[in-house]
Amino acid sequence: MAFFEVRRIVKNFGGLCAVHEISFSLEKGQVIGLIGPNGSGKTTIFNLINNFFPLTAGEIYFKGKRIDSLPTHKICALGIARTFQVVKPLKRMSVLDNVMAGAFLHTGSTSQARARALEILEFCNLINKRDLDAKKLTIADRKRLEIARALSTDPELLLLDETAAGLNPKETEEAIEVIKKISRSGIAIIIVEHKMKVIMGTSEKIVAINFGREITQGEPREVINHPEVIKAYLGDHYA
């Protein structure tokens, strides 16, 4: 059985079908990209994986265990952490405290949580901002904080939701470096991203979706040259 597997998941909102029979899987330490036009259901898939929304149908497995009916906090405790596309900093807490809040998942000791949080801030290039209130951060730093906080829970699988959106080219390069660094440390990653540069620079496999349905999945080169994928992004003329 795969390390992480999503099996024919379906999500309906009222009469609207947001996700329809999506399946994919990844192995330990693998990085895969999830691409698709705006509103195609990528973020919804993340919200289904960590059970912000209950599935309408389908199954999700992690390390051989079915997790789709577990509450969000248990899924995180099992080792799946995520970031949010619309960042959710804990505004009135300092950057350090934000990351400590996550680090407390595996320790009850304040000093241990602080030590772990400082390590992670170092890793994510946020160490100089540790005493700032999270609400005072720039957008690039908020995106870094999202990653740092997710890492603080010691995940084995990380869900990154558009961490490069709104970043300038230099910041994007840095984000790619951070993602690569995380991947080298053995953490599996699923990336939702519009910037193809980020996806191509990091992913070993791509799943392309549109209108909540899978178009294709496989090798990055094959997927982005797939006529249906080009059509979904650019319209019929270019296919």
Partner: peptide, 20 residues
Amino acid sequence: YYFISIREDQDAAESLGIPT
């Protein structure tokens, strides 16, 4: 830390493994 996290953003807190 958990109390304040819940106050600041319950969804974020829950996704950090906090049983809110």
